[in-house]
């Protein structure tokens, strides 16, 4: 299966991120990292969260990019300081 070879999705996302090369992103619902891999090389850091253990195992299997941290949890268990993030991406997750 070839998915979004036109890269419409990542183009639309990158156009919306502030200070994109230094951007601190929290991605909610990263799944197997399909989208994370595509945009993470353009941003500062990514904290990618998902409660789906199997999806995250698939993400880890192919290697996590160096600027990406993955946590297995739902958003309601994620504790972060106020005003610490440039963008929160709900990735097909809302």
């Amino acid at each position: 299966m070839i998915i979004d070879p036109e890269e419409h999705e990542v183009d639309a996302l990158l156009a919306r991120l502030p200070a994109v090369d230094r951007c601190v992103v929290v991605e909610v619902g990263c799944g197997d990292g399909r989208l994370t891999r595509r945009y993470s090389r353009h941003v500062g850091t990514v904290l990618a969260v998902d409660p789906d253990q199997a999806a995250l195992a698939a993400f880890r299997k192919d290697g996590i990019p160096g600027n990406v941290e993955v946590r297995e949890m739902p958003i309601d268990r994620l504790a972060l300081p106020d005003e610490s993030v440039d963008a929160v991406l709900f990735s097909w997750a809302l």
């Binding site: 502030p18 929160v88 709900f90």
Partner: peptide, 25 residues
């Protein structure tokens, strides 16, 4: 979902922090 959006809102830096909602239309 409202709670999730509100939690995310608190994490955003001022003034340019933002939430991006990506999903099927």
């Amino acid at each position: 979902m409202v709670d999730a959006l509100n939690r995310a809102r608190r994490w955003l830096k001022a003034p340019s922090g933002r939430i991006i909602d990506l999903r099927p239309a």
